Computed example of a mutant assay.
Amino acid sequence: MATFLGTQHDRRPAVGVLVDGYLLATGTALDPATGRVPDDITSLTDEVARCFAALDVALSEAGMSRADLVKTTCWLADEADRAEFIPAYRDQCAAGVYPARCTMVAGLPGGARVAIEAVAYRA
């Protein structure tokens, strides 16, 4: 059975879904009230950090941490950002953990330059 996380805080959609030890979650830097990237995010590195902070909410609620991440799918709004994205992403990963990753370029909403979908697992 699936457990939808974050819904007790009246957030829609859920911050993550927990199924049989797997957590499926998405991290973006978008402000839920405006649907836009906040003005205090001034760099791609800041945006990646905010994406991971959003993932932390779901990980924490599932009793997990970044060390439990096993796979991410990352979207960049612009291929030119890839060189800056890779070290920013790596810096946010738990020490010694570098999940399998696929990075693609696609249009993103709200002025976002980055979005990260993650799978975590804990037996």
Results as ranks from 00 to 15, higher is better:
76 L>W: 05
74 C>A: 15
62 A>H: 15
26 T>W: 06
43 S>H: 00
75 W>V: 08
60 S>W: 06
46 D>M: 01
73 T>Y: 11
14 A>N: 06
19 V>T: 07
55 L>T: 02
72 T>N: 09
24 L>K: 08
27 G>E: 10
18 L>N: 10
51 C>R: 05
38 P>Y: 00
24 L>W: 14
24 L>G: 09
19 V>R: 12
33 A>C: 00
21 G>C: 01
66 R>V: 01
13 P>A: 02
29 A>M: 12
20 D>G: 11
76 L>Q: 06
66 R>G: 06
46 D>E: 02
32 P>G: 00
56 D>L: 09
33 A>T: 01
59 L>F: 04
20 D>R: 13
33 A>W: 03
30 L>Q: 14
25 A>Y: 08
73 T>G: 06
75 W>Y: 14
54 A>I: 09
49 A>Q: 11
82 R>N: 10
14 A>C: 05
26 T>K: 14
17 V>Q: 09
51 C>I: 05
41 I>T: 11
50 R>N: 01
67 A>Y: 09
69 L>N: 05
32 P>I: 00
62 A>M: 13
67 A>G: 15
65 S>P: 03
45 T>E: 15
81 D>Y: 04
78 D>G: 08
52 F>I: 03
51 C>N: 12
22 Y>L: 02
74 C>G: 10
74 C>P: 02
64 M>I: 10
25 A>G: 07
30 L>C: 12
56 D>P: 10
39 D>A: 11
29 A>P: 15
55 L>A: 02
64 M>N: 11
41 I>Q: 09
15 V>M: 08
75 W>N: 03
30 L>S: 12
22 Y>T: 01
57 V>Q: 12
82 R>D: 13
51 C>E: 04
20 D>C: 03
17 V>C: 08
55 L>E: 05
21 G>D: 01
40 D>M: 04
23 L>H: 04
25 A>F: 07
74 C>F: 05
25 A>I: 03
30 L>G: 12
44 L>Q: 04
21 G>K: 03
36 R>A: 11
70 V>L: 02
26 T>V: 11
25 A>C: 10
18 L>Y: 11
29 A>L: 10
14 A>E: 09
39 D>Y: 07
32 P>D: 01
47 E>M: 10
30 L>R: 13
17 V>W: 07
77 A>I: 09
19 V>N: 07
36 R>G: 05
73 T>F: 10
44 L>I: 02
38 P>G: 01
23 L>T: 04
70 V>W: 04
42 T>H: 05
25 A>M: 02
23 L>D: 04
41 I>S: 07
65 S>W: 03
41 I>K: 14
35 G>R: 14
24 L>T: 08
43 S>F: 00
39 D>P: 10
66 R>F: 00
65 S>R: 05
44 L>H: 06
13 P>Y: 07
76 L>K: 05
77 A>S: 15
37 V>C: 06
72 T>G: 05
63 G>D: 10
79 E>Y: 13
79 E>C: 06
35 G>V: 11
23 L>E: 04
43 S>V: 00
20 D>I: 00
16 G>F: 03
70 V>G: 04
58 A>G: 05
36 R>K: 13
37 V>E: 09
21 G>R: 03
30 L>I: 11
70 V>S: 02
48 V>P: 08
31 D>K: 09
54 A>H: 15
48 V>C: 06
